[in-house]
Amino acid sequence: MARTIAKDHDEKRGQILKSAARVFAEAGYDRASMTQLARECGISKANIYHYYDSKDAVLFGLLETYLRDLRDRVCGVDVAGLSPEEGLRRVVAEILLAYQGADDEHKVQSNAMGALPEEQQKLLRAYQRALVQYLSDTLQTVAPEAFAKDPSKLRATTMSVFGMLNWYYMWNSGAGSKAREDYADLVADLTLTGVAGL
């Protein structure tokens, strides 16, 4: 008879992934062991293997969950009825708020994604591309004529905005929601009006 799935199965998987993010971020994915992960989770290695059959499977589960949820949260921002400028402000703020509490996941994404098989990396990069495309589309609504004249500026602008947001993540990772919202406003102001408009 097939083993039934426990009622708290998804919750336990989530706990394992959160612990894995911490272990992989602190020790480095290559050096981290399933023994360390079990200790961090407060469960046996055998119990972890009930949910994930390898360390690679844990890494993929962690990054797939993190990037899918990030994509869904940001790309799900409702900008209907907002001006292009207000829409940009909303999306930029949502990205920074979505980063809150995900420092370990973000670090693992940056440092360990290359350890996964190419097919899995393709899926994860697709999540990243969707996020970039959504911000790019939002920026394009602000200045459609300017970007139509020189489309290369749209990608440069999009990645520059992400650069400002990722700088904040790296240097102010413990910042609360209000500080993130204030910085999101600064990024939007710089993007919309430049330094002279501050």
Rank of each mutant, 00 (worst) to 15 (best):
1 M>H: 09
2 A>C: 07
2 A>N: 12
5 I>F: 03
7 K>V: 10
8 D>T: 11
9 H>G: 01
10 D>Y: 06
11 E>F: 08
12 K>E: 09
13 R>C: 05
17 L>A: 05
19 S>L: 00
19 S>I: 03
23 V>K: 05
27 A>E: 14
28 G>S: 06
28 G>F: 04
28 G>L: 01
30 D>L: 06
32 A>G: 02
34 M>Y: 02
42 G>T: 07
43 I>C: 15
45 K>V: 06
46 A>Y: 11
46 A>W: 04
47 N>M: 13
49 Y>S: 06
51 Y>S: 09
51 Y>V: 02
52 Y>D: 00
53 D>K: 10
55 K>R: 08
56 D>I: 08
58 V>C: 02
60 F>P: 04
61 G>F: 01
63 L>A: 02
65 T>V: 03
67 L>E: 02
67 L>C: 04
70 L>C: 08
71 R>C: 09
72 D>I: 00
72 D>C: 02
74 V>Y: 11
74 V>R: 06
76 G>I: 04
76 G>E: 05
77 V>P: 02
80 A>R: 15
82 L>C: 10
82 L>Y: 05
83 S>H: 04
83 S>A: 14
85 E>S: 10
88 L>N: 01
89 R>K: 12
90 R>K: 15
91 V>G: 07
93 A>W: 08
98 A>G: 04
99 Y>I: 00
100 Q>M: 12
100 Q>N: 05
102 A>W: 05
103 D>P: 00
108 V>G: 00
110 S>E: 15
110 S>D: 11
112 A>F: 04
112 A>P: 03
113 M>F: 12
115 A>R: 12
117 P>E: 01
121 Q>E: 14
122 K>H: 14
124 L>Y: 04
125 R>V: 11
125 R>G: 11
126 A>M: 03
127 Y>S: 02
131 L>S: 03
133 Q>L: 12
135 L>I: 01
137 D>L: 07
137 D>W: 06
138 T>V: 05
140 Q>K: 13
140 Q>V: 00
140 Q>A: 13
142 V>M: 07
143 A>M: 12
144 P>L: 07
146 A>I: 10
146 A>R: 14
148 A>G: 02
148 A>F: 05
149 K>E: 15
150 D>A: 09
150 D>L: 09
153 K>S: 06
154 L>V: 07
155 R>Y: 14
155 R>P: 00
156 A>M: 13
157 T>D: 14
157 T>A: 11
159 M>E: 12
166 N>C: 00
167 W>R: 04
169 Y>T: 13
171 W>P: 00
172 N>V: 13
174 G>H: 11
174 G>K: 06
177 S>K: 13
177 S>R: 15
178 K>Y: 10
178 K>C: 08
179 A>S: 15
180 R>K: 09
181 E>C: 04
186 L>N: 06
186 L>A: 14
189 D>S: 12
191 T>G: 07
194 G>W: 04
194 G>K: 13
195 V>W: 10
196 A>Y: 11
